[in-house]
Design a binder for these strands. Structure first.
Lengths: 138, 138
DNA sequence: TGGATATCCGTGCGATCACACGGGTGTCTG
DNA sequence: CAGACACCCGTGTGATCGCACGGATATCCA
């Protein structure tokens, strides 16, 4: 075995890469496993209907308390509370407590690209996609 | 109007919205549950280390076969095969079969914003984040 | 002070996910 | 034609996720 730095559980047969050049290129410039995990972690926070809607709403109206978010979304307090718990833990939202009410807003250092690209533009993608739907929302 | 077609299991106490104005605004312009689900579905395809790396690699080198992707990523064929299965099912990648080799590439109608914003820019976000680590790479 | 409110926290459970494993198909090679 | 390949597919399993439930805490009101 000599100095094999790769995983044991990894490969299977497949001696020759079919296209060594591209493989090398992809390997060198590709996304590292570590970076990919960080990216995936971040994206999975947006990859949930409730959390996406919470963030979108906060981007829209600046500040909301838990109960109001649940109202605006038509979701249970529990579901919203759970979503906020994760977002808060991840540092994507911050809280301001006023009396017994806790107001949430997007964190000051909320990743701009995330807000701009994912919250705003991708939403359009999802929206234009629908063929019908009669939710005449105002 | 009339919004009382909402769930029974939904709300709890909380009679008055604390900030009726914002709630209304968020409700009216906010992300619909349906759109949010579509968005979440799309994003969750990117929200996985292996799938993100596969897509990133394909964006980089145009075309690769399964075995080569596994090689470039240092992952098992199974893991890559599973990832490709989902991406293919979702229509994000297309295949070209040549002999016994199956080449994958990003679908022609791969959502541009997804490719540009998520694959390219968010990656920078993840990358610039690391403070140390001297993996000269290559 | 007692009770209602707004929210947080820990736990349990059903659903889903990522992936290994075993088996099957079409293709190339000797 | 037999065997090695490159890959696909279905299934089983451990891990994680989303969220309801129950209880705790701090605040406001009477």
């Amino acid at each position: 075995m000599t100095g094999s730095r790769e995983q044991p559980t990894a490969m299977a047969g497949h001696d020759h890469p079919v296209d060594p050049e591209r493989v090398e290129h992809a390997r060198a410039r590709g996304l590292g496993a570590e970076d990919a995990s960080r990216l995936a972690g971040t994206l999975s926070l947006l990859a949930d209907p409730i959390r996406a809607r919470i963030l979108y709403a906060l981007d829209l109206v600046e500040e909301l308390c838990v109960g109001d978010i649940a109202l605006a979304l038509g979701a249970t307090i529990d579901a919203v509370g759970y979503g906020l718990r994760l977002l808060r833990t991840a540092g994507l939202v911050t809280t301001r407590k006023e009396g017994r009410v806790v107001y949430y807003r997007l964190a000051a250092d909320f990743p701009e690209p995330l807000r701009d690209h994912c919250l705003r533009r991708l939403v359009d993608l999802s929206r234009s996609n629908d063929t019908e739907d009669a939710d005449g929302g105002e």
